[in-house]
């Protein structure tokens, strides 16, 4: 079992949130899993964490299509935040539009954090979705 301190799930669909939570239970013992209905709420939560000097979540599951602030807008904001840790961000979408994949790749290249791309439906969360093997170390 992988030990993680904190995980964010950002998705407006309660079924997906339920599913991710359920899958996480089988692979990690993390006790701090928070879900947000949209990017705006998640960003506020993250900023508060930084303000309180709490460590950032190690993994974020991020939906693209959300009201108020969607996944891309959230990533835009995240990039501009000064975060030392490298967060593993799993972009999860039901979209099979190549444009979404292109945008993801653009973010991947310019983003300090690790970005994964996962299409719905999800059946299982792999260990590689939660950690990054540091080949160099």
């Amino acid at each position: 079992m992988k030990k993680l301190n904190s995980i964010y799930i950002i998705d407006d669909d309660p079924i997906t949130v339920f599913g991710i939570n359920k899958m996480l239970k089988t692979i990690t013992t993390c006790r701090d899993i928070t879900d947000f209905e949209n990017g705006r709420l998640a960003l506020e939560g993250l900023k508060q964490r930084i303000h309180q000097n709490l460590p950032c979540p190690e993994v974020i599951f991020l939906d693209i299509n959300m009201p108020i602030m969607d996944g891309w807008e959230f990533l835009d904001e995240l990039v501009s935040l000064d975060i030392k840790e490298r967060i593993i961000i799993n972009v999860i979408t039901s979209s099979i539009d190549p444009i979404d994949y292109k945008r993801w790749n653009e973010f991947r290249l310019k983003c300090w954090h690790y970005l994964n791309f996962k299409n719905k439906p999800l059946y299982k969360i792999e260990a590689t979705d939660l950690t990054r093997v540091h080949l160099a170390s």
Partner: peptide, 8 residues
């Protein structure tokens, strides 16, 4: 998105 949910 709905069918993905069904599937899952």
């Amino acid at each position: 998105s709905h069918t993905a949910n069904f599937s899952m």
